[in-house]
Design a protein around this nucleic acid. Structure first.
Lengths: 165, 165
DNA sequence: TGGATGTGCTTCGAACTCGAAGCACGGCGG
DNA sequence: CCGCCGTGCTTCGAGTTCGAAGCACATCCA
């Protein structure tokens, strides 16, 4: 077969493939639990979690949400609409910028989040952290955090300069 | 080993979120490169890579592919059909089991794989491994491999016993 | 001030994804 | 043999995803 590309040795290839597979399997497991526990998709859960846990205010602009969640803007619009129809968030024009939309989690949203969270953490705990010691976990986080920051700095993701017309 | 403690401490939560975000960002970056270089989706690339690189014979049964790629069977059927229409793989009934379908990579498939691979590894190298030393990479792989094995052992994925009627 | 350009979000169409149900074969027990 | 269940794959329908294009407001700068 073709010999290995010089820019990716076998150890790297293995780490890469394993990383992607772990993430895929974990996502599937989590998705299933969320669906059963609260009829939420993974993205919907992420949105609620970000609004309800990460952010003190419980609200954020669409674009910031999309960036935080690694998601397309149009996809976020779709999911935000579903969440709004379910009464879990509200959407209102931003006060400072008439173009912007501020998404805010509702009480019902917080309640559902609280309902779903224990099962969620339980799945993650069992699937991801069972084979890892506390020390392993810290090591893993220390390894991945710089990578995340590096990646974030490279691809503007939602801030791709728009093509001229 | 952390025992099945249902709650996640902050370090675990951070590791979990970072892991998922890194995987998401990496997947997006890779997907874009594959689309440009060879008009392949990530799944299609994975299938070709598995057939062309992992497996000596260049062929595999559908179910084994689906399991290896963390993918639904129906989704695999869809992608395999696209690949077949593009002339990159062939599908034929298994010799030993009339129900089974053997997917085999074609010369064109290998050629496309060879075309796309350098750019692919280049992206992974730059996005994922740039901030990591060689030692980091090995540590990462050593941490994730047991996790993957653990996850694989838990959810049968495609082997879910079918419901009675 | 006002045109040009940039930014925030939504709409639109096409493509992809999944699980459930369906079809066909394999393998086992009688 | 034959009937019955298990397994391998596909079909089907509904839901989701994305990027490109579009609309509305903001910002810049002569």
């Amino acid at each position: 077969m073709t010999d290995p590309d010089p820019s990716l040795d076998p150890a790297q290839l293995g780490a890469y493939l394993t990383l992607m597979e772990v993430a895929g399997l974990l996502r599937h497991a989590v998705e299933q639990q969320l669906r059963e526990a609260g009829d939420l998709s993974y993205v919907q859960f992420q949105i609620l979690a970000r609004l309800g846990l990460d952010l003190r205010t419980g609200s954020a602009r669409m674009t910031d949400l999309a960036d935080g969640v690694v998601y397309s803007r149009s996809g976020l619009t779709y999911q935000a609409r579903l969440l709004e129809e379910a009464g879990l968030v509200t959407r209102s024009p931003s006060e400072t910028d008439e173009r912007g939309v501020t998404v805010t989690i509702t009480e019902a949203g917080r309640a559902l989040l609280a309902t779903v969270l224990p099962g969620h953490t339980e799945v993650v705990s069992r699937q991801l952290f069972q084979p890892l010691t506390r020390e392993d976990t810290r090591t893993l986080a220390d390894l991945l955090t710089p990578v995340r920051d590096h990646m974030r700095s490279l691809p503007p993701r939602s801030a791709v300069p728009r093509r001229r017309r």
